[in-house]
């Protein structure tokens, strides 16, 4: 199924949901649960919170289906909802770090040899590094390199112009590189 066919089918599913056929929403949940769950996990760093926020995202999207615009894609719209949920969750935990506060990347959490040894699992290592990135850079790196989206899709999700997104992505990559290197990931 190409993108246009998928968009047509999804629009049809949404119409049916709005007509009261809630069961068919499972089609969209099945299709996008992997993407949404992974984005939430990479943003939040733990599976329980990721599960909660991903589910919350689907439920909020369902409630707001009447606001979905036909000329956008459901996945993009859903991602923007889930990312906002993740942002709120991070703020509620006061876990964010402002960009200004990080002139130099702090690698204290992954710098010791003992911790570096524990981080030899790539998944854990990359997540540890992502957790250290400022929220804005983390969003850019997750969407661009883990979800493989292009800048236009990222713009639709994050509502930020492409040039600003590129700057965030470039800086995010450089910080990620430094964190992975100092965390021992490049020695594998």
């Amino acid at each position: 199924m190409d993108k246009d066919d998928m968009r047509t089918e999804e629009y049809s599913v949404i119409k049916q949901c709005m007509d009261g056929n809630a069961d068919i929403y499972a089609v969209l949940v099945e299709r996008y649960k992997g993407m949404v769950y992974n984005i939430a996990y990479r943003m939040l760093g733990d599976t329980d919170s990721a599960n909660d926020m991903a589910q919350e995202g689907f439920i909020s999207a369902y409630i707001a289906l009447k606001d979905f615009k036909k000329n956008s894609t459901f996945s993009t719209w859903l991602c923007s909802i889930v990312i906002n949920k993740c942002r709120d969750h991070l703020r509620s935990k006061k876990a964010t770090v402002s960009i200004d506060a990080i002139a130099e990347v702090s690698v204290s959490k992954i710098a010791t040899p003992e911790e570096a040894a524990c981080n030899r699992q790539i998944r854990h290592g990359i997540q540890t590094a992502l957790n250290e990135l400022p929220e804005e850079y983390r969003e850019a790196v997750v969407l661009k390199h883990i979800e493989g989206l292009d800048y236009k899709e990222m713009k639709d999700i994050l509502g930020i112009n492409v040039n600003a997104l590129k700057v965030r992505t470039y800086r995010g990559r450089e910080m990620l590189k430094k964190l992975l290197k100092e965390g021992g990931l490049f020695n594998e």
């Binding site: 499972a26 991903a54 790539i122």
Partner: peptide, 20 residues
């Protein structure tokens, strides 16, 4: 390359039924 090739998690088996 490391970010692109990191493992993807699989959503819990009950995810869809939980949402529904």
């Amino acid at each position: 390359h490391t970010a692109k090739n990191s493992d993807r998690l699989i959503a819990p088996a009950s995810f869809t039924s939980d949402v529904m």
